[in-house]
């Protein structure tokens, strides 16, 4: 625990100075620990990896809330627990999860994707901002590479991937809350 804390602290400090390799190593080492925390709550659920990725995105988005004098492990565990609880709350509210990743792939395959699913996705895409929606369409449905989309939108390839991922996370959340409104309607 202390060993890990010292190592992660060192890696994160170096990441803050712009060392991408140190940051990648920190996230890579953190991922299995996060996975354990998520599984502790979820069991061996198929949706575990989605939540792990949401936690990683949250850590990335909130990395400035860690001060270099603070211990890293409690900070990371607190975020993992918070996001896991949050994911379960919205999932419980939303009933079954729409496997968006599969959905996008299915639609990219051919026109024969489930038409209801296609309509659902189109409606969800309307609810997020245009730029994110166009990235999801291009990368997830039309199968363009992040590099191509980036060149078109004037963004770096990495930025496109992160935007794509964030958009998917938001779509998942939206799909969750939509489930609720439909349930209450019935």
């Amino acid at each position: 625990m202390t060993d890990r804390n010292d190592r992660w602290g060192d890696l994160l400090r170096r990441a803050n100075r712009g060392e991408a390799a140190a940051y990648a190593r920190f996230l890579t080492e953190a991922a299995p620990v996060i996975r354990n925390i998520v599984r502790g709550r979820a069991g061996m659920d198929a949706g575990t990896e989605d939540i792990v990725q949401e936690v990683l995105l949250a850590i990335h988005a909130k990395r400035h809330t860690w001060r270099e004098s603070d211990p890293v492990t409690p900070w990371l565990y607190a975020i993992a627990r918070y996001k896991t609880a949050d994911a379960f709350r919205s999932r419980k509210r939303g009933g079954t999860q729409v496997p968006l990743e599969d959905l996008a792939e299915q639609l990219a395959d051919d026109g024969s994707g489930d038409p209801t699913a296609a309509r659902d996705l189109a409606r969800l895409l309307d609810e997020i901002d245009d730029r994110s929606a166009s990235i999801v369409r291009a990368v997830g449905i039309e199968g363009e590479s992040a590099g191509e989309v980036g060149a078109r939108l004037g963004m770096s390839e990495g930025a496109v991937r992160v935007a794509y991922h964030r958009a998917l996370a938001r779509l998942r959340k939206l799909a969750g809350t939509e489930g609720l409104t439909e349930e209450t309607k019935e």
């Binding site: 712009g18 996230l27 990896e49 792990v52 990725q53 990683l56 930025a159 992160v162």
Partner: peptide, 15 residues
């Protein structure tokens, strides 16, 4: 997206 890909992508935004 695989978790490893996500990590690789996030790492490009390290600073």
């Amino acid at each position: 997206m695989k978790t490893e890909d996500l990590i690789a992508t996030l790492a490009t935004e390290a600073p």
